[in-house]
Design a protein around this nucleic acid. Structure first.
Length: 480
RNA sequence: GCCAAGGUGGCAGAAUGGUUAAUGCGACGGACUGCAGAUCCGUUUCCUGGGGGUUCGAUUCCCUCCCUUGGCUCCA
């Protein structure tokens, strides 16, 4: 297992990552509340932690990665009410869209998506523990609140002091609560809304409780890694610590807290309530999943990312196209050929440079997941590969593998290049080959009108031609 | 007001107590081309918010101020 350092938001320092029970790693990331379409801010978190999980797995850790789905809460109920839909059907629909988007983006490291409503027994058990241990109280209306004053560590994650919260603008005024900062664990049922039976009366879970009930069940009372968007740090993650540590008496709940930077648009956080959103589906349709993935990983995960319509993803598309080009060429070579191929070998120096680079990529990523730096190093490698591109067809399969090694590393670990497919020897390749020959003959006899007609026809079939000194190549245009 | 994260070239965005402060986008020039595009090569030596301090040396460490963003019980 590789030595990995991770910046922990609780201690505010980078620390050596040591799981409680190596090589196993328990990892939890706050998922979404599927009441509406996801936007590109949500997907950033998903991609970032997908890379974390992929990398840890690559380095020999056995990661159990869980991401919850809040399928019951105020927003879902509110939206379902507006639309006249069943709240669970609404949640299921948007979660289905999310899974589809994740599949397109190559986010496949999440092993389990627990739904809040499947964990009612665990939720009730934890609320009960908190009541029994004196950290929570029932109010007359049948709700149960967490009494923040009873938990001295409250505020340690976000640096907030409880007294400082009191003048806060949005503390809800509720006579039932002992103190304004107390938060709801179990919310008494409202007529006409879904509810579950409990020792305190019918109701539904509060916002924070599902996460700790789920992790207590799946990952144990203490676990290794908890991630989420920066906007969840307070109050949500603070509440998770208070709930779990008070319920079990064991601390710390989590060894490493990771928070991903937010995506902003027009200088403000992208958020549905502000209306400055760019939908995930739209981004995927317009630019393709790999461009979006590249866009996210081209920044450090903790940095804020300012999204500019008409610029950000266009720039990412250009950069990604250039980054992936040498790999596309390499792939087109070895898939057309038999597994082993005799040919020219690379200079010793280049072969060892390839191996060194792969080592360096691991090292770079293991230092708090510096994906941007990994990409920068791959761009530099691309310049070295470039001089070999015109003579790829003369290289041995071993030489090709050497040139491709850093790309394969990035493909496996960052999940880029997934759309890169070999041209292959399919019927399509044969048909395109015939067309290219016809065009070449037309060009040779100076019939450029005919040559351009063929090029345009192929283009409309999403086949792009490129002429260079060695002849004409073709590629399928990225599917949308 | 309190808490947190930031401020680096035209833009995006890294890194580091020490030779020319990555990389990419864009721009410009060149090669290649029937043309276009793509690609390749080169240039874009005058970019680290202001002011103090520590140091032989600060963009990096410390103090302070300014500004931006996020949070202050809906949020990824």
């Amino acid at each position: 297992m590789r030595r990995v350092t991770i910046y922990d938001t609780l201690s505010r320092e980078s620390r050596l990552f040591v799981p409680r029970f190596p090589p196993r790693v328990g990892m939890f990331v706050c998922g979404l509340t599927p009441y509406d379409e996801a936007h590109i801010g949500h997907a950033r978190v998903a991609v970032v932690f997908d890379v974390v999980a992929r990398a840890l797995a690559r380095w020999g850790y056995r990661v159990f990665y869980v991401q919850n789905v809040t399928n019951i809460d105020d927003k879902i109920l509110g939206r379902a009410g507006e639309l006249g839909l069943d709240p669970f059907a609404l949640a299921a629909r948007h979660f289905g869209e999310w899974r589809e988007a994740m599949e397109r983006l190559g986010v496949r490291s999440v092993q389990y998506y627990p739904h809040a409503t499947d964990y009612l027994p665990e939720i009730l058990e934890q609320v009960g523990q908190l009541v029994d241990r004196g950290f929570a109280y029932r109010t007359d209306d049948g709700s149960v609140y967490y009494e923040v004053a009873k938990f001295p560590g409250y505020g340690k994650l976000s640096g907030q002091k409880v007294e400082a919260l009191r003048p806060g603008a949005r503390l809800e005024i509720d006579r039932n609560k002992h103190a304004p900062e107390d938060f709801v664990l179990w919310k008494a049922a409202t007529p006409g809304e879904p509810s579950w039976e409990s020792p305190w009366g019918p109701g539904r879970p509060g916002w924070h409780i599902e996460d700790t009930a789920i992790t207590a069940r799946l990952l144990g009372p203490r676990y290794d890694l908890h991630g989420g968007g920066l906007d969840l740090k307070f109050p949500h993650h603070e509440a998770e610590i208070a709930q779990a540590e008070a319920a079990t008496g064991l601390a710390p709940l989590v060894n490493f807290w990771m928070h991903a930077g937010l995506v902003s648009m027009g200088g403000e956080k992208m958020s549905k309530s502000l209306g400055n959103v760019y939908s995930l589906t739209q981004a995927l349709d317009e630019f393709g999943p790999m461009v979006l993935r590249f866009y996210y990983l081209n920044a450090h995960y903790r940095s804020p990312l300012e999204f500019t319509r008409g610029e950000s993803l266009e720039a990412a598309r250009e950069a990604y196209a250039r980054l992936s080009l040498p790999y596309r060429r390499l792939r087109s070579q070895w898939d057309q050929e038999a597994p082993e191929r005799v040919g020219e070998e690379l200079p010793e120096e280049l072969a060892s440079a390839s191996a060194d680079l792969v080592d360096r990529l691991d090292e770079t990523l293991a230092d708090d997941f510096q994906t941007r730096e990994v990409i920068a190093q791959l761009f530099v490698w691309g310049h070295r590969v470039a001089e070999w591109l015109p003579k790829l067809d003369r290289l041995s399969s071993g030489a090709l593998a050497t040139l491709a090694a850093p790309y394969r590393w990035v493909e496996e670990t960052l999940g880029l290049f997934e759309e890169v497919e070999a041209s292959g020897s399919s019927d399509l390749a044969a048909a395109v080959g015939v067309a290219i020959e016809a065009r070449t003959r037309a060009r040779t006899r100076g019939d450029f009108a005919e040559a351009d007609r063929i090029r345009d026809a192929l283009r409309s079939a999403r086949i792009e031609l490129e002429d260079d000194t060695t002849g004409t190549r073709w590629e399928r245009t990225a599917s949308k």
